[in-house]
Design a protein around this nucleic acid. Structure first.
Lengths: 411, 411
DNA sequence: CAAACTTTGTTCGACTACCGAACAAAGTGC
DNA sequence: GCACTTTGTTCGGTAGTCGAACAAAGTTTG
């Protein structure tokens, strides 16, 4: 039997099987997608009789089904078991600072329906909650029978949160929300559990399961948007720090004599690479770049990105500068955390090599050989849907870890 | 029954008991020091009959003994079981850049014998290995019967290491050692297993078990000596990164336009706060401080530290400047990692408040309120013996996790 | 002080999860 | 055609854990 990793995400811990066998069995079948009882018994290191017993329980839950015979390996042909990816559906909500997006996915992270809409999330909690419900229902309406199959709802919020308590919200970042998410209403409305986490953390989760972080235990995901936040993946789990505030890389100073930042520090990364900083630098550069695509319009980060993709010299110059500053911060990150990869997400990541090449150059000049050798700096593989997919994955991961969340495994 | 934490270190995971009960039982008795069968059954959440059975096995190993009756709580008085701290001894070796120190400890981290000696460790591998053996034997000779009771040997090395393979050593930091530790000879010489880890990591371990990091799951230990390194404690475990290079905080840049560093970067923390930087700053300041204790002698970091403790103005000025620079780096660390504490070790930590007060001032000015609120910056509680104690603790932790290391539990 | 109640620790029968051996079914290879 | 493999099931055995019952040694109440 081959033990090479199949596609996709976190392999169940093969070594010390700490958890109950039924859970490990379900997780392993999900992970391998198709597997025989014999292979399962070898992977879990239990006897074939035990594997058989476990499987017969799982068949009863309808999460696993027999799907015909596999190829013989010199003896009787194995009966293939397959995880039923469509047995349940999950709603993943990306609540950004200025927009809301919703993905309806199956149990393999595939997006079956998608909705997004601009909205002043920061200032309008009630309207945001209504919008979330509306977009969710629109997604559910796209897929017949979706409401009945719904397993749970995951929400990515642009603020530090205690992921164990989806009711509360940090009041310092979203003051209008008064410290309450109000997502209990989602729970009652859709009749399923609601999970919540920080957006950068969920970006990291999504990349780990389906994107550029597959197979990497320790990496850092950096979301480059209006603000800058990081999701730290440590040992395959999100690292949250002592008070859920880990990952605030935007307020790491890269120049102690730099401009003052709202946070009280000077020369924060966000004052060089944040949305407002990019707009400011573009404006400053307009005088020296008369023919630029950026002249004569209201400059936004979206416009700068588009102009850079169209190879506008001024926009590219702004991006290049930002990349160099980002490089200084990432060099420090590499020295301190020695991650297996750095994955860039957020809107700025769309620029690909225009961002990566100057960034890598700065990093190479500024790190110890040993630490950067194994480190790779990449852009997100999931693009703008990554955060919503991560929110959905949050529910999936919880369910695979604690299968009692599946209605058919509760009895 | 009270569930408040007794003194000391990592409590065994009470929740999901992932590991075999005999191991958890031993660990719990070690942790509580004295406990009855009834209390043990409640802590482990097993029946009293099972607890009784587990205990009778442990009594046979001599690691646990009955030590009379405890106070009644309204019924029959409990028989107290006590972990036998002196059942085995451990050697902890602190291999610094310029010295070797050895601690002989019991199973509670208490130092029973101590030796140290200056030595050019970097350039003389063979002499260092001989010196380690000599100091270890001297320690063993101090305690009657120590050799027979020896459980294992832990070594702290001043370089990144793969702690799972004590034979290899990073050749980039200690070139004369040619990538080999040669510690297999220690294994055969003393007839016990040898464990190895990086010195900053072991400083963190020691503080977590016995010092300023007790009860804190996530903290950062910073060793301030000739070089500057950090041990990152994440979820109660040392975080090593993808290639065992995590914690290189000395080469995090705090000023991108600063002096070039040997690592290729500019303005590394070590160029402001490292041993050579302190000496350089002291020399530069001599002209403006005619009566200083530092004039007229060969300046070393040790002398600067002593002068600062004696309140010499120039030395204090050098320390204050270093503290401010360190503060910039720590502010970044707090924003990025949000640790529950930052613990300063190494020789510079002896200065206590002279270092801490200016440091805290800089940090307060440079961090988000939320992240620093729960974070505390402290100095090591273990002092110069911390690293050796950490090396000993490495062995202790391994044995409590995998009790088959105890000879009496092997059969 | 006796009676009632608590707590501790042990004993013992029962249950559960898992294993290994044996076996039938269904393949491959010479 | 025959020997050998692999798969999946059946079934009796075993180790680990539990619960009930009990004796021993306390405390509290009247």
């Amino acid at each position: 039997m081959e033990l090479t990793s199949p596609p996709h995400p976190p392999a169940p811990a093969h070594e010390a099987r700490g958890r109950p066998l039924p859970e490990l069995a379900l997780e392993t079948i999900w992970y391998r997608r198709r597997i025989s009882r014999a292979d399962l018994s070898r992977l879990l290191e239990v006897s074939r009789s035990t594997a058989s017993e476990l499987v017969s329980d799982l068949l009863a839950t309808k999460l696993v089904a027999e799907v015909g015979d596999g190829p013989s390996r010199g003896g009787r042909r194995p009966i293939l078991l397959e995880f039923q990816d469509e047995a349940h559906l999950i709603l993943g909500v990306d609540m950004g600072a200025t927009h809301v997006a919703v993905a309806l996915t199956n149990l393999r992270g595939r997006v079956l329906a998608w909705r997004e809409e601009a909205h002043p999330v920061r200032s309008d909690p009630d309207g945001t909650r209504e919008l979330i419900v509306r977009l969710c229902e629109a997604c559910l309406a796209d897929v017949p029978g979706a409401s009945e199959a719904l397993l749970g709802l995951g929400v990515a919020v642009p603020a530090p949160v205690d992921h164990r308590d989806p009711k509360r919200l940090s009041p310092t970042v979203l003051p209008a929300w008064e410290g309450r998410s109000g997502f209990e209403s989602l729970e009652t409305h859709f009749g399923v559990p609601v999970f919540m986490d920080n957006d950068a953390n969920l970006g990291a989760v999504a990349e780990r399961w389906w994107g550029a972080g597959r197979g990497i235990e320790d990496f850092t995901y950096i979301k480059l948007a209006t603000g800058i936040g990081a999701g730290l993946m440590v040992g395959g789990e999100v690292y949250r720090g002592a008070t859920n505030a880990a990952g605030e890389i935007g307020h790491v100073s890269i120049d102690p004599k730099g401009l003052p930042c709202v946070c009280g520090n000077r020369g924060c990364l966000v004052t060089f690479v944040g949305g407002e900083a990019l707009v400011r630098r573009a404006r400053e550069g307009l005088a020296g770049a008369p023919g630029s695509m950026l002249s004569g319009c209201e400059i936004t980060t979206g416009i700068i990105e588009r102009a850079a993709l169209a190879r506008d010299p001024l926009a590219m110059q702004v991006v290049r500068e930002a990349a160099h500053h980002l490089g200084v911060a990432i060099a420090g990150l590499l020295n301190l955390l020695n991650p297996g990869a750095v994955i860039l997400g957020g809107s700025l990541a769309r620029l690909g090599d225009d961002l990566l090449l100057p960034l890598r150059e700065t990093v190479l000049r500024r790190t110890l050989v040993s630490s950067v050798a194994a480190s790779e700096i990449r852009v997100s593989e999931l693009g703008p849907r990554g955060i919503a997919i991560g929110a959905s994955t949050l529910v999936l991961a919880s369910a695979l870890e604690r299968p009692s969340l599946f209605p058919t495994m509760r009895d």
